[in-house]
């Protein structure tokens, strides 16, 4: 069994299953902060997804996308927490 077929049959479904679980929490989350954390984890798992895909496609150019995504992933969380903090103080 080659590496590519192993990754497609076993590892990729696990990642997709966990993406579905995180998305369920994103839909369900009682408070706004739950959704924000779920979104952050979605982006972080997306970075791993891209890394795995570049392994399967045997093409290293996708890792550039993963690098930019990892750089800006936490900005959304920071912006949301800043906004929530301000909203709480102003009302």
């Amino acid at each position: 069994m080659t590496v590519e077929s192993y990754l497609i049959t076993f590892v990729m479904p696990i990642i997709c299953l966990s993406l579905i679980f995180i998305f369920l929490r994103f839909l369900k989350g009682p408070a706004v902060v739950d959704r924000v954390v779920a979104l952050d984890l979605l982006i972080t798992v997306g970075v791993g997804f891209i890394g795995l895909f570049s392994l399967i496609a045997n093409n290293a150019i996708f890792l550039d996308v993963a690098m930019i995504l990892a750089l800006i992933a936490f900005l959304s969380t920071v912006a949301f927490s800043f906004y929530l903090d301000k909203r709480d103080k102003d009302d």
């Binding site: 299953l17 966990s18 679980f21 929490r25 779920a38 984890l41 798992v45």
Partner: peptide
Amino acid sequence: FILIASIGIL
């Protein structure tokens, strides 16, 4: 590990 994190968040 990613699967454990996603089960944990659920």
